[in-house]
Design a protein around this nucleic acid. Structure first.
Length: 491
RNA sequence: GGCGCAUUCGUCUAGCGGCUUAGGACACCUCCCUCUCAAGGAGGAGAUCACCGGUUCGAAUCCGGUAUGCGCUACCA
């Protein structure tokens, strides 16, 4: 008997992985790494109807992206495979058959129509909906009659009519369910696929899973699973039900809450280290102040005792803040490397590709601390690449200035800049700062005007650094353009 | 309707009977820094700890009830 920790992430490929799924994966991964155990990925593709093409790849990609590598599962294999439930149907059939033989399950021939009618009636009479056990005690004769009619039955679990099923949830403590509140649920569907309940229990046992860490929505199903373990003579794993992640309106996360799939966050330019850090803190905390925490420390300190019991709302503002923190912490090279794909993608088509590496490298330090996501980098640096600036010429005229003053200031500035032999931050500052005083302008006024002329924006990286990167020629061109724009009567 | 879980600033959370005038973070506001925007620094506002009872010398912390929210109640997971 080993006390090896073996946990699994068992997604169903019925859609792209959302933050809730991934948070569950993260906690499983952290738990396994903390205890030196194994992290297993198992694909629960038992719902043929809802199966989504590409979902498995999206799930695995997301895990890899976040660094949540698995010890057993798709692609890497393992000695308890296969790790796709659709490839394990024979096992489920055998177990279901055994259950029927043992008297713990039975064939049910009820038509969907009958079940529907039954449920409607139950709801109408305000009774708890649930299977009425119509086929629970069919005689052999009745059964063969149904078989003769060509009906493919489902296999239902013969839930004990009395008693209680208690268990100790590692996060919530003692939980008890009355068996009579549990109906005879389906184990094997008529299409030959098992339901979650059967496949999950069988595989967790066969794969020697020691701890089941899953979302709270499974809490009510746990007694069903426990009853199944009992009937099968398997010793159940330990259960821990994680708090759910909710949308801003406190309902289950869905499309209307904006980005829900983890792949969308990736596309929006959130760093994987941000997601890991943020998701870890959604339902778990180290202490009363730790916000930024490394994966290593997460693994080191993770514990189920510090997992909270209450559902959490996904706070995107805080995510963005945290992403900014991580972006700023990147080395310049790393930041550049990561931003590059977003630049190639996000810059206007008119900008020549490939982007000149040296030029890009000079720009990046100017915006690194201004970017909250990688996806907004193209917008922040666009004016460095585009030929023509498109802005309202009225922006050139700063507070307390008029057209004439602005025009003169730009002209003077242009002259000073043109005289410059060395064109860098210091030389620009040494000539432009005095110029402001000479013109009787505040530095903010002169620099503001120049900023609009140079960048087409009122908010941009520091002016002199920006100009130094752009180069003398381009700066002069843009000031010329600004002068022309100013001279043109505003329409 | 039944069953289950939960309930501390708008949000994420700390708190596990006295150290709490309930701490931190995001967001918000003010000021400083400053050529704008960021970043950074200093402050501020924001929670009668859902409510009602009980236990106790003492409760956000323990117990009970109520309310509210969420989940489950499918041949979905």
């Amino acid at each position: 008997m080993t006390s090896q920790v073996r946990v699994r992430f068992a997604p169903s490929p019925t859609g792209y992985p959302h933050v809730g799924n991934i948070r569950t994966a993260l906690f499983n991964w952290l738990f396994s790494r903390h205890w030196g155990g194994s992290f297993i990925v198992r694909i629960e593709d038992t719902d043929v109807v809802r199966k989504v093409e590409g979902a498995v790849e999206a799930i695995l990609d997301s895990l890899r992206w976040l660094g949540l590598l698995w010890d057993e599962g798709p692609e890497v294999g393992g000695k308890h495979g296969p790790y796709f439930q659709s490839q394990r149907l024979k096992t489920y059939h055998e177990v279901a058959e055994r259950l029927v033989l043992q008297g713990n399950a039975y064939y049910c021939y009820c038509s969907p129509r009958r079940l529907e009618g039954m449920r409607a009636e139950q709801v109408r009479r305000k009774q708890p909906p649930g299977y009425d056990r119509h086929c629970r005690n069919l005689s052999p004769k009745e059964r063969s009659q149904k078989e003769d009619e060509g009906i493919t039955p489902v296999v239902r679990f013969k839930t004990p009519l009395e008693g209680k099923t208690p268990f100790n949830d590692l996060i919530r403590g003692e939980v008890v369910f009355e068996n009579r509140a549990i109906d005879d649920y389906v184990l094997l569907k008529s299409d030959g696929y098992p339901t979650y309940h059967l496949a999950n229990v069988v595989d967790d046992h066969l794969m020697q899973i020691s701890h089941v860490l899953r979302a709270e929505e499974w809490l009510s199903s746990t007694p069903r699973h426990l009853l199944l373990y009992q009937a099968l003579g398997f010793s159940p794993p330990q259960f821990a039900h994680l708090p759910m992640i909710l949308g801003s309106d406190r309902s289950k996360l869905s499309k209307r809450h904006g980005a829900v799939s983890i792949t969308e966050y990736r596309e929006e330019g959130y760093l994987p280290e941000t997601m890991v850090n943020f998701l870890a803190l959604l339902g778990w905390s180290l202490d009363d102040k730790t916000e930024i925490i490394s994966p290593k420390e997460l693994v080191d300190k993770f514990s189920l005792e510090r997992v909270s019991k209450t559902a959490a709302i996904f706070n995107k503002d805080k995510l963005s803040w945290m992403n900014g923190v991580y972006i700023r912490s990147l080395s310049l090279d790393d930041f550049t490397q990561r931003a590059l794909p977003f630049l190639e993608e996000g810059l206007p088509a008119s900008v020549k590709r490939p982007l000149p590496p040296d030029y890009v490298k000079k720009i990046m330090p100017l915006i690194q601390e201004r970017a909250k996501t990688l996806a907004e980098v193209p917008e922040l640096v666009r004016f460095f690449f585009t030929q023509e600036l498109d802005y309202d010429s009225r922006l050139l005229i700063g507070k307390g200035m008029n057209q004439e003053v602005t025009f003169g200031a730009l002209k003077e500035a242009k002259a000073k800049i043109a005289e410059l032999k060395t064109f860098d931050t210091d030389s620009l500052e040494s000539v432009l700062r005095p110029l402001a005083a000479g013109l009787g302008l505040k530095t903010g006024q002169l620099f503001g005007t120049l900023r609009v002329a140079i960048t087409g924006q009122t908010a941009a990286p520091p002016l002199f650094q920006t100009m130094a990167v752009l180069g003398k020629e381009k700066c002069l061109e843009r000031i010329n353009d600004a002068l022309e724009n100013l001279a043109r009567p505003a329409s």
